[in-house]
Amino acid sequence: MSQFPTCSRRHVLRAGGAVAAVCGAAACTSNNQQGSSLTDAAEEPPPPPPEGTPLVRLADVPVGGAAAAEAPDGRQILVVRPQEGVAEAFSAACTHEGCTVAPQGQQLECPCHGSVFDLSGNVVTGPADRPLDRVEVRIDGDQVVTGQA
């Protein structure tokens, strides 16, 4: 005679189901309290800021160069002036691994892995393999503001 108690298949399946349910409930509770990268990734992006929110003075962005600024939602952005009377903006998050890209003369450089972007946000040197994400801006008087031109 075996020293282990006998269990029917039905008992084993019920016990396994109960354990799975408890573990699943604990995981859901934990994710809801602390946040989850899976739920965070599935969330909608924040709504765009109100049109016309000032970002940077036009005089602080050199023609043929760029200046760092902060969007109303706290994201870092780069405002560029490829020519007089034109302002464009890009997310400062490198498309390689998200490090903050900074203006360096007529280029935008990532200090983490060496990606370089031109003033149009296009990749000049990798490892980034796609352009910086565009941010809608326009010139309003002496300011660069949020919104479409």
Results as ranks from 00 to 15, higher is better:
Pro54Leu: 08
Gly24Trp: 01
Val19Leu: 15
Asn32Ser: 14
Ala20Asn: 03
Gly121Leu: 06
Pro82Val: 07
Val79Phe: 04
Gln104Ile: 03
Pro72Arg: 11
Leu13Cys: 04
Ala67Leu: 03
Gly126Leu: 10
Ser30Phe: 12
Pro111Met: 09
Gly74Ile: 08
Gly24His: 02
Thr39Cys: 06
Val63Ser: 01
Phe90Leu: 05
Gly65Ile: 09
Cys112Thr: 08
Gln83Thr: 12
Ala102Tyr: 00
Gly114His: 11
Ser91Asn: 09
Gln104Val: 15
Thr53Arg: 13
Ser37Met: 09
Asp40Trp: 10
Ala15Pro: 00
Ser91His: 07
Arg81Tyr: 03
Val61Met: 02
Met1Trp: 01
Val80Cys: 14
Pro62Met: 13
Glu97Ile: 05
Pro62Leu: 13
Thr125Ser: 14
Pro46His: 03
Pro62Trp: 14
Pro48Asp: 10
Ser120Asn: 12
Arg9Leu: 11
Gly147Tyr: 10
Ala42Pro: 02
Asp60Met: 02
Val19Met: 14
Ala71Arg: 12
Ser2Phe: 00
Pro45Lys: 07
Arg138Val: 04
Leu55Trp: 04
Cys7Trp: 14
Ala71Val: 00
Leu55Ser: 10
Ala149Glu: 12
Gly74Asn: 10
Ser8Tyr: 04
Val101Phe: 08
Gln106His: 12
Gly74Ser: 11
Gln3Phe: 06
Gly121Lys: 07
Pro62Cys: 12
Glu109Pro: 00
Ala93Ile: 02
Glu70Leu: 10
Gly105Tyr: 04
Gly74His: 09
Arg134Gln: 10
Ala20Trp: 01
